[in-house]
Design a binder for these strands. Structure first.
Lengths: 213, 213
DNA sequence: ATCTGTGAAGCACTTCACAGCG
DNA sequence: CGCTGTGAAGTGCTTCACAGAT
């Protein structure tokens, strides 16, 4: 069976709410309550979960601890994942310093850049390697995920190199639609693109001319 | 007419490619060529654009400069936008220091935090204000957009305060589904959630146990 | 001949509504 | 009686395919 990608995208949110409920000591939860917390219809939650199994009990709801574990297993969150980060500029350094990855099992194990000034330097405990050696290094030390934090103009070539190294999941911080062969999953994450689509809805309600400040 | 949100989300990508083409000096572009660059079908591009007008010429294609300008106008990218940033921790500082907003017309004009140690300090040229005063400050100096970079547990209350201050567009860095009244647009941007959905597809192809490193 | 703009068809996701179980 | 799991209906986005313009 082929599960819609939108469903997969919602699962991490479900998993996170369930973890909260677990910490709050709640044993059972209904699709209605989960839906309220998530801003999603109860039917959608039941339908989404039904792709993977029958986790609930009629008349009762879902066992929070059990469902949480099932989702973590389905998503692979119960295992560690290795990441190569490409691009150690301002953004790359922020990503390297970000404390939110490792508690969730994501570990950046390789860092690459093209700037000779920082190649060889150690940043946040990781030696920066030459991106020209990316394929060679990934052969020696494979990773599961690539994070691309290079300028837009270089992102496609970096992604191509990652794909040649059999990296199948890529998080792309460059504001462009990257091309990749089928089987490779790319997610774009760009705050400017996100803002640029929201301004569409703001056009007629702009609060004040900037010059007035 | 009500234009699908997915269409609005694609427009910034179109606008960006058109700007590249403009800089490359290309005068005309067909939906086929645009589609190739963007990994989108030509029909989708034509359909998307047709929601807003008839910008092309049959037999020729689209005038790059003209279409670029139309899209910038449709999205409101030809105007400056004011932003309030809430949460000046590690992430908030990275956002404050990010050079990518202002070239696109996004200007952070207010910074808030709840930590007494940094309230009053100046960071990246902006005085950090007390988040408890958010509504008062936004009354004096309205903004168009709010960026929320506070911990998950505080994000909803911050969003509620922004909404009370008539902020209608919010970029939320917290990894949760925030609630807001209709008319308010929230986009979530969280790298961990993005990774957590990609691992679903990786489950059976994990490269190596992390312990082996 | 080429390429747009667009109704109509096709496809995919969401919601409904209810049988069935606890 | 409450709540899940799920076919079926509903809705909305994407793709097709072609008339029409250059």
């Amino acid at each position: 069976m082929d599960i819609p990608a939108v469903v997969i995208d919602r699962l991490p949110l479900y998993a996170r709410v369930l973890e909260s409920l677990e910490h709050e000591g709640q044993a059972l939860v209904s699709s209605k309550e989960l839906g309220k917390r998530l801003g999603v219809t109860p039917a959608q939650i039941r339908k989404d979960l039904s792709y993977f199994g029958r986790f609930g009990k009629q008349g009762r709801g879902y066992n929070v601890h059990h469902l949480s574990g099932e989702l973590r297993n389905i998503l692979g969150l119960d295992r560690p994942w290795r990441i190569a980060l490409v691009g150690i500029g301002q953004l790359g350094r922020a990503i390297l310093g970000y404390q939110g990855f490792s508690p969730q099992g994501f570990k950046i194990v390789l860092a690459f850049d093209s700037n000779p000034v920082i190649i060889g330097r150690e940043i946040a405990g990781l030696k920066v390697r030459d991106v020209a050696q990316l394929e060679r290094e990934l052969e020696r030390q494979p990773v599961d995920i690539g994070i691309v934090a290079v300028p837009e103009g270089n992102a496609q070539e970096v992604i191509d190199a990652l794909v040649r190294s059999n990296v199948q999941s890529i998080l792309n911080y460059a504001p462009m639609a990257a091309q990749a062969p089928p089987g490779v999953h790319i997610k774009r994450i760009d705050p400017v693109l996100a803002l640029q689509s929201m301004t569409y809805y703001l056009k007629d309600t702009q609060v004040a001319p900037l010059a007035a400040s």
